[in-house]
C-alpha cells in the first residue's frame, strides 16, 4: 500500500499541485480495492482513526480524494466516510465566531445570506470553486484538509484569520490557520484526528473582504488567487488586514509584509500598490501550463490590488 507520506513524496518530486503532472504517467481510472466504513458519530470516527489512522483516508466530499483513488495515487486500506456523521453541516454565528461545520458543502456557503453579508471573501471563493455540481458535494473541511495550494479556501482562511477545530481521542484542539497548512497536501491535523469545524472571528463594523481568482477557464484550478479582508476604523484608517495567496507556493501563503504595510494607513492607490508589490515578493509560484512563474507573480500583484480595492469598497459600505 502507498502511504500518505509516499504519495506526498512522489507528488513533491514533480512539483506542487501536480496530481495532474503525475497522473499523465499513470492511466488507471479504477480505484484499487479498499474497505469502507461510515461512522455515524464523530467519536466513532475518531476511534476508528485511532485504530487504523495510518491505513485510512477520510472521505468527505470526495472530489479530490476519489480522483486520487482512481489514478491510484492513493490506495488506502480503509476509507472512512464521514458523510454519515450527523451534525457536521452548519453555518452559525455564536460567541464572537462564525462556526462552519467541516462537512458544510461549498454550495451552502455560497448560498448563505450570513456569509454573503459579512464574509464576502468566503462566498466569493466558495462560489467559484470548480463547478456547481462539484460545489454540491465538496466540503469546506475537505478543501482545507487537502491543503492543495491551488485550493481556494486555505488562502481564504488565512485572510480571515480562521482557526480549525480538530477532534482526537484526547479531545479538541484549536489550530490557527497559519499553523494548520504545513506543506503541499500536508496539514497540522494528525492522522488520528478529524476536523470538526472552522471558526472565523466575527468581523467588526467597517470590515470588507473579497476573493479574486484568475482562471484559464471557469472551473479550472486558479492561475493564482488572492483573498483579502480589511478592517477600517471610523476615520477610514486601516486597522487590520488579512491576505492569503492561492497557487503562489507549496502551500497557501500569508504575505505578512503586505499586511503590515497597510496597517495604520489610510489605504489609497499608492498604499494598495505598495502592499500588492510586497505580496508579489512573497509569492513563490512555479511555471506550469497555467503560465510562467513571472506572470503568476505579477498576477499576484494585480489581483492583490483588485482584491484590496473590492474589500475596501465593501468595508466602506458598498457591495
Amino acid at each position: 500500500m502507498i502511504s500518505k507520506e509516499s504519495i506526498i513524496a512522489s507528488l513533491n518530486n514533480v512539483g506542487p499541485n501536480t496530481l495532474y503532472e503525475l497522473s499523465k504517467r499513470l492511466i488507471l481510472l479504477i480505484p484499487a480495492s479498499f474497505d469502507y466504513v461510515a461512522p455515524r458519530t464523530l467519536d466513532e470516527g475518531v476511534k476508528f482513526l485511532e485504530k487504523q489512522g495510518d491505513d485510512a483516508k477520510v472521505l468527505a466530499g470526495g472530489h479530490s480524494l476519489i480522483p486520487l483513488l482512481r489514478f491510484r495515487l492513493a490506495s488506502p486500506k480503509y476509507l472512512v466516510d464521514i458523510n454519515r456523521i450527523v451534525g457536521l453541516e452548519y453555518i452559525r454565528e455564536s460567541d464572537g465566531y462564525l462556526h462552519i461545520g467541516s462537512l458544510t458543502r461549498y454550495a451552502d456557503v455560497e448560498a448563505s445570506q450570513l456569509i454573503q453579508s459579512k464574509y464576502q471573501v468566503l462566498s466569493d471563493a466558495a462560489g467559484h470553486i470548480a463547478d456547481p455540481l462539484v460545489r454540491n458535494m465538496g466540503t469546506v473541511g475537505g478543501n482545507i484538509c487537502h491543503s492543495d495550494p491551488a485550493n481556494d479556501l486555505p488562502a481564504t482562511m488565512l485572510a480571515l484569520g480562521a482557526s480549525m477545530v480538530a477532534l482526537g481521542s484526547s479531545g479538541e484542539r484549536v489550530i490557527p490557520a497559519e499553523q494548520f497548512f504545513v506543506d503541499t497536501f500536508q496539514t497540522a491535523l494528525k492522522l488520528t484526528e478529524l476536523l470538526k469545524e472552522i471558526r472565523v472571528p466575527v468581523p467588526s463594523a467597517h470590515t470588507g473582504s473579497a476573493y479574486m481568482k484568475l482562471e484559464r477557464r471557469v472551473g479550472d484550478f486558479p492561475i493564482v488567487g488572492v483573498a483579502a479582508q480589511v478592517k477600517l476604523n471610523a476615520q477610514g484608517i486601516c486597522e487590520n488586514v488579512g491576505l492569503g495567496l492561492t497557487a503562489a507556493g507549496p502551500k497557501a501563503l500569508k504575505p505578512k509584509g503586505a499586511e503590515a504595510s497597510l496597517r495604520g494607513k489610510k489605504p489609497g492607490e499608492k498604499e494598495i500598490r505598495e502592499a500588492a508589490n510586497l505580496a508579489a515578493q512573497d509569492a513563490q509560484p512555479v511555471s506550469d501550463l497555467r503560465g510562467p512563474a513571472e506572470y503568476k507573480r505579477e498576477m499576484i500583484r494585480v489581483l492583490t490590488v483588485r482584491a484590496l480595492q473590492r474589500a475596501l469598497e465593501r468595508a466602506r459600505g458598498g457591495t
Binding site: 469502507y36 472521505l59 470526495g62 472530489h63 476519489i66 480522483p67 476509507l79 466516510d81 454550495a107 456547481p132 455540481l133 462539484v134 454540491n136 458535494m137
Partner: peptide
C-alpha cells in the same frame, strides 16, 4: 435533490 457527478461518488 442535488445534481452531482456520479463518477466521483462511491
Amino acid at each position: 435533490g442535488k445534481a452531482v457527478k456520479s463518477c466521483t461518488i462511491l
